[in-house]
């Protein structure tokens, strides 16, 4: 596999196109106002990439992660994978996945991903070797962590 292909794994390119969860209306109100729902907007000032992401809790677990955003294949795929992965997890479980993802992303390729825990998100391990792209992969995760905390506090 070429270095480029190990960055843009097939899994990532597919998620970048299918964009699971990318059905949050672009005009979603900034504060959704429903109990158990949190929303966060994140911007990457370097490239202007943006994401608005909503976490909805129901009965102690994540019912849905919905988002809209504009960005590169890495950031869009990352949001897609995250949305799929989060569904049905308890907040504590999701935070554990987030921690694991962050650790891998900061490792510059030195930490092997725990595939059981990270699922499709393990495909992003290759991104950690490209420091300029780590922010792209992290954008939706930062938004999700923020939105999750809000959702928990209003549930």
């Amino acid at each position: 596999m070429s270095a480029l292909d190990s960055l843009y794994q097939q899994m990532i390119l597919e998620h970048a196109k299918s964009r699971y969860g990318a059905d949050l209306p672009a005009d979603a109100p900034a504060v959704p106002g429903q109990p158990g729902t949190g929303q966060s907007h994140q911007l990457n000032p370097v490239c202007g990439d943006e994401i608005t992401l909503q976490v909805q809790l129901d009965g102690g677990s994540v019912q849905a992660v919905r988002w809209h955003g504009e960005g590169c294949a890495i950031s869009m795929a990352s949001a897609s994978v995250l949305s799929e992965l989060a569904e049905g997890k308890s907040p504590a479980e999701l935070l554990q996945v987030m921690d694991a993802f962050r650790t891998v992303m900061r490792s510059r390729g030195k930490t092997a991903p725990d595939e059981d825990l990270l699922g499709d998100a393990a495909a992003f391990a290759g991104v950690s070797r490209y420091p300029a792209r780590v922010k792209c992969a992290m954008l939706s995760w930062v938004a999700a962590e923020d939105a999750l905390r809000q959702a928990v506090s209003t549930a």
Binding site: L4, G71, M76
Partner: peptide, 13 residues
């Protein structure tokens, strides 16, 4: 259909 970041990464390779 391709974000500038991805274009740049492809060219850099």
């Amino acid at each position: 259909g391709v974000h500038a970041h991805d274009v740049g990464q492809y060219l850099d390779s």
